[in-house]
Nucleic acid binder design. Structure first.
Length: 816
DNA sequence: AGCACGCCGACT
DNA sequence: GTCGGCGTGCTC
C-alpha cells in the first residue's frame, strides 16, 4: 500500500493523507501509530486509519517518518467505534484519539534551543535576556521552551531567541522524546560465572578479609541466595538490613563478585492475597440470571432493574464468571471509581491479578501500563470509568454499565460530549459482545427501551435477605409552621425521629443538595449581591472556607464585612446550603457527632477514606451531605434518611429535574435499613400534593415511569424526540449574537421550524468570560433522524463558510 | 491545535 | 518611527 489516511491528535476535521515510504510498506497496518511531520516542523504521532494505493489530488502528500508499533495498537473495533462517535456526537476523530490515548503514547516533538559553536560570543553587545540564555546554554547545551521560561518572561522569549539566531549563536531544533519510562527496581545477585572461574568460595571470602564490610555484604547476599534461590534480592532490602554503603557494593561489583541488575515493576499493585469463590445466589437472583441468559441467547441486551440492596452485584459477578469461563473479557463501567469500594474488593478477591482498574485518578504512566496489559490480554476484567471505553480490548464478551442512570456517564470532562452508556451499547455491538445495564432507578430512556423489548427487562424486586423496603413519609412544612412545630429548617417530627435514632445508636442521613453555606450574601439596605467577575452568576458563600465561590469557574473572593456598594453593615444570607444545614444540625443535636459529605469537604486528601472509617465504626451519628451521599455508602447501621428541603430538588429548570429527584431520593433511601428492614425516609415539602412526592412515597415503578413518560410525551422530550443542543461561545457578545442568529437562519432553511428552538442566551449567559448562546434541536426519532442530522451537517458547513465566525466555539450535545 | 502572516494602537 | 496586539488562514 502506497498511501495512508492518518488520524492526527488535533481538533481538525477528517484524516490526512501521507505517503508510505518503501521500507515501511510491508510492515504498516491499520491501527498502528506513525510519526508524521505536520505544518512547519512539528512532528506528531498519528494513527493509521486506512491504507490504499491510488492517490489523485492536487497536493503532494508528505512521507511518514516512521512506524511506532510492530502490531496495531488500536483494534479495528475501536476504529469503528471512533468513527461512529465522530459522526453521532458531531466531533472530530482527532479529539477522540486525544481523549482515548494516555498522553505518553502520543509522542510529540518539542522545540529545543541549541548552542552553536561557530562564533565566539561578544558578551558586550547582548541584553540581559540574551546573556542569561547563552549562559544557561553554556552549562546545558540544549534547553526546551519551558526550561527557558524559568528565567525569561514568556513574552520576551521569542524575541530573545530570534535575535540570537540572527547572530548565529544558537539554532532551534525539534526533538522527540519517549515519555513513558518503565519503573525499574535494582536487584543484586552473586556472579556465578566468576565463582566458577575462581573455583573456590572460601578463596573468595578470604580474599576479602582486608575489607570486612565487603566480606559481610558478600556473605549476606550469598546467604539470601542460598536461602531462597528463586527470590530476587532487592538492593534496597540489603541496604535496609545492614549498615552498608554504595562504595562497598561498587567494589564488589568491580571485583566481579556481585552483579547489579534491573527488573521492570508495575506501578499498580494488584491484589495478591487468597482468592475467594463468589457467594451463592438467592432463588430470586438465580431467576434473574436465567432471564439474562435467555435474553443473551436471543441476542438481546439487558436492563437489570434491581431495587437498592437487591444484590445486583451478585448477578454481575455471576455473569462475569460466565464470561471469563468462556475465555472472553469483561468491562465493568462505574460512574466513579472511588465511591464504589465494595464491588471492587469483592472482584479483587475473586480474580486477583486478572483484574484491572482504569480511571481519572491514575497517573499517565499507570494508564499506559493498564493499556499495555489490556493489549497483551493479561487482564480479563477491567473496572473503570467512562474513559475505559477506549482501551484496546481484544476479546470483549460482556460490558456491564452499573448505575446506568448516573449523570457521570454524561460528564463533560472531554472536549466533546458523549453518553458513555449509549456509547457502551455501540461498543458492545462492534465487539459483538453482550451488555447489561444495571440500576435501581433506570433512566427513562433505558426503561422505555426495555418496555419496548429493544433490550430485555429483568426486574429484581426483593431486597437481599428478603428485608423490607424503607417506608416513606411526607411532611407538610406549611402545616408544621402553622402549628409552630418547626425548628429552623426542621419540623418537630423530623427532630423527634432523629433523636429516636440517636437513642438507639443508629445513624441518620440528611440530604441537602446544595453546596456552600448560603446561596448568596445580600445587602439588606441596597439589595447588592456579589457576582462572579468571570461569570453571570451570584457567588455562593462558603462558611467553612469563609469565602465566596463561583461554582462555575472556581473564582474565589473574600467574604465582605460591609456592603461593597453602599457600605452598609446589614448583610444577610439567602438560600440555604448544606453547610448551614450541618451547622443547624449540630446545634439541635449538640451531643451527636455530625459530619458533612460534599465535594468541598472531600477535597482534602483521604477525607473520603477517613469519613468512611468513621461511618463504618459508628462514630458518626448524623451525616449531612449533597447528592454524593447517595453513592456507595452501604452501612448496616443507617436507618433514617431525612430531606428537609425536598422542593429544591424539583424546581430546577431542567426537563429531567423530576426524574433526577426521584432517582436521588430513591438512591439515598436505599441506604436506610439495609439489614434491619426498618428504614425510614422523611421528606419535607411545601407542596405535599405534588404528584412526584406521592409517586416516590408509593414506590410503584410502573406508576412513576408512566407519569414521567406522559410528561415527556406532552412536552416533546426524550424518549419521544432526540435532542441536540448546540452551544455557541465567544468572548464578544455582539459577535456571538450575530453568529447565533445566522446559524439559526441557516438551520431554518433546511430543517422544519418546529424542530428548532432558539438561538437564545443560555441560562447562564457568561461562564469564564465566554458568552453563551444555545440552539436546541428536537429531532424525530424515526428514520428522519438521519436525514435531519445530515441537514444539520450541511447547515454547519454553510455556517463555516463565514470566516469571521470561525472563532466562535461550538459544542454539540447529542442526547444530553 | 499551533504557527505564520498581516494590519492597527501605545511606546522608546 | 517600531513593537506587539490578535484576527485570519493553513496544515496532508
Amino acid at each position: 500500500m502506497n498511501f495512508a489516511q492518518i488520524i492526527l491528535p488535533l481538533n481538525l476535521k477528517g484524516t490526512f493523507t501521507y505517503k508510505v515510504p518503501e521500507d515501511l510498506m510491508e510492515k504498516i497496518e491499520v491501527g498502528m501509530r506513525v510519526l508524521i511531520p505536520f505544518g512547519g516542523k512539528k512532528i506528531y504521532t498519528g494513527i493509521v486509519a486506512e491504507l490504499f494505493d491510488e492517490f489523485e489530488d492536487s497536493f503532494v502528500p508528505k512521507e511518514i517518518i516512521n512506524l511506532l508499533d510492530s502490531q496495531p495498537i488500536v483494534p479495528k473495533q475501536q476504529l469503528e467505534f471512533w468513527n461512529w462517535m465522530s459522526s453521532y456526537y458531531l466531533c472530530n476523530l482527532g479529539e477522540i484519539y486525544r481523549f482515548a490515548f494516555p498522553s505518553s503514547l502520543k509522542l510529540e516533538s518539542e522545540t529545543y534551543v541549541r548552542l552553536l559553536s561557530e562564533r565566539t560570543i561578544d558578551w558586550q553587545n547582548l541584553d540581559a535576556n540574551e546573556t542569561y540564555l547563552l549562559q544557561a546554554l553554556e552549562v546545558r547545551q540544549m534547553l526546551n521552551l519551558q526550561e527557558i521560561e524559568a528565567f525569561i518572561p514568556k513574552k520576551e522569549i521569542i524575541k530573545t531567541i530570534n535575535a540570537l539566531i540572527d547572530e548565529r549563536y544558537i539554532s532551534v531544533d525539534e526533538k522527540i522524546t519517549e515519555k513513558y519510562k518503565a519503573k525499574e527496581i535494582a536487584y543484586l545477585r552473586i556472579n556465578n560465572e566468576e565463582l566458577k572461574i575462581k573455583n573456590s568460595l572460601a578463596e573468595i571470602i578470604s580474599s576479602l578479609k582486608n575489607a570486612r564490610k565487603q566480606q559481610e555484604l558478600f556473605l549476606l547476599i550469598l546467604d539470601k541466595e542460598t536461602e531462597n534461590p528463586e527470590k530476587p534480592i532487592r538492593k534496597s532490602e540489603i541496604f535496609d538490613e545492614g549498615n552498608f554503603n554504595n562504595s562497598q557494593l561498587k567494589s564488589l561489583i568491580e571485583k566481579k563478585l556481585v552483579q547489579e541488575y534491573y527488573l521492570e515493576k508495575d506501578r499498580i499493585d494488584s491484589y495478591e492475597g487468597e482468592l475467594e469463590e463468589i457467594e451463592q445466589l438467592t432463588e430470586n437472583q438465580k431467576l434473574a440470571v436465567s432471564e439474562i441468559n435467555k435474553a443473551f441467547q436471543e441476542d438481546k441486551n439487558v436492563l437489570l432493574h434491581g431495587i437498592t440492596s437487591s444484590g445486583k452485584t451478585h448477578i454481575y459477578l455471576e455473569k462475569i464468571e460466565d464470561c471469563v469461563n468462556s475465555e472472553k473479557n469483561v468491562l465493568l463501567l462505574l460512574p466513579e471509581i472511588a465511591l464504589t469500594k465494595q464491588i471492587t474488593i469483592r472482584l479483587e478477591k475473586k480474580y486477583g491479578k486478572k483484574l484491572g482498574f482504569y480511571h481519572n485518578k491514575l497517573t499517565d504512566f499507570e494508564r499506559v501500563e493498564v493499556w499495555r496489559k489490556i493489549k497483551k490480554n493479561e487482564l480479563q476484567i477491567l473496572i473503570g470509568t467512562r474513559n475505559s471505553l477506549f482501551l484496546p480490548f481484544e476479546n470483549l464478551g460482556l460490558i456491564i454499565v452499573d448505575e446506568e442512570h448516573d449523570s457521570a456517564y454524561k460528564s463533560r470532562d472531554s472536549n466533546f460530549f458523549f453518553n458513555a452508556k449509549d456509547s457502551a451499547m455501540m461498543l458492545a455491538e462492534f465487539y459483538n459482545s453482550r451488555m447489561v445495564l444495571g440500576s435501581a432507578t433506570p433512566s427513562l430512556e433505558s426503561y422505555d427501551l426495555a418496555m419496548k423489548d429493544k433490550i430485555r427487562y429483568v426486574p429484581l424486586n426483593e431486597r437481599f435477605g428478603n428485608v423490607d423496603v424503607p417506608k416513606f413519609e411526607i411532611i407538610d412544612v406549611k402545616e408544621a409552621q402553622s402549628q409552630k412545630k418547626i425548628i429552623g429548617n426542621f419540623s418537630q417530627k423530623m427532630v423527634d425521629e432523629i433523636n429516636l435514632q440517636l437513642e438507639h445508636k443508629k445513624q441518620s442521613i440528611i440530604l441537602h443538595n446544595r453546596r456552600g453555606y448560603a446561596n448568596v450574601i445580600e445587602c439588606e439596605t441596597c439589595g447588592h449581591v456579589t457576582y462572579c467577575s468571570n461569570c453571570d452568576v451570584v457567588m455562593t458563600y462558603h462558611k467553612s472556607a469563609n469565602e465566596l465561590k463561583c461554582h462555575y469557574c472556581g473564582h474565589r473572593a473574600g467574604k465582605p464585612t460591609t456592603c461593597p456598594s453602599c457600605h452598609g453593615a446589614n448583610l444577610n444570607t439567602k438560600g440555604v446550603g448544606v453547610e448551614q444545614i450541618e451547622e443547624e444540625t449540630q446545634k439541635i443535636f449538640s451531643e451527636a457527632e455530625v459530619d458533612r459529605m460534599d465535594v468541598d469537604a472531600m477535597r482534602k486528601k483521604f477525607a473520603y477514606e477517613k469519613l468512611y472509617e468513621k461511618l463504618e465504626n459508628g462514630e458518626t451519628d448524623i451525616l449531612v451531605g449533597t447528592q454524593m451521599i447517595s453513592k456507595g455508602l452501604d452501612f448496616e447501621n443507617i436507618e433514617l434518611v431525612v430531606i428537609p428541603k425536598a422542593d429544591a430538588l424539583i424546581y430546577v429548570q431542567d426537563f429531567r429535574a423530576e426524574e433526577r429527584a426521584y432517582q436521588l431520593i430513591t438512591q439515598v433511601a436505599g441506604r436506610a435499613g439495609r439489614v434491619s428492614g426498618e428504614g425510614k425516609i422523611l421528606i419535607q415539602t411545601y407542596n405535599p400534593s405534588h404528584s412526584i412526592f406521592e409517586l416516590i412515597k408509593n414506590q410503584n415503578v410502573k406508576e412513576i415511569y408512566d407519569y414521567f413518560l406522559d410528561e415527556r410525551k406532552k412536552f416533546l422530550y426524550p424518549p419521544f424526540v432526540k435532542l441536540i443542543m448546540i452551544e455557541l461561545k465567544h468572548r464578544k457578545e455582539d459577535k456571538l449574537n450575530r453568529a447565533s442568529q445566522f446559524l439559526g437562519s441557516v438551520l431554518r432553511k433546511y430543517i422544519p421550524e418546529e424542530c428548532i428552538l432558539g438561538p437564545e442566551k443560555s441560562p447562564i449567559a457568561r461562564i469564564n468570560n465566554l458568552y453563551q448562546y444555545q440552539i436546541l434541536l428536537k429531532f424525530p426519532k424515526n428514520k428522519n433522524y438521519k436525514i435531519y442530522k445530515e441537514l444539520l451537517s450541511k447547515s454547519l458547513e454553510e455556517f463555516d463558510e463565514i470566516t469571521a465566525y470561525k472563532s466562535i466555539k461550538r459544542d454539540f450535545l447529542v442526547d444530553f
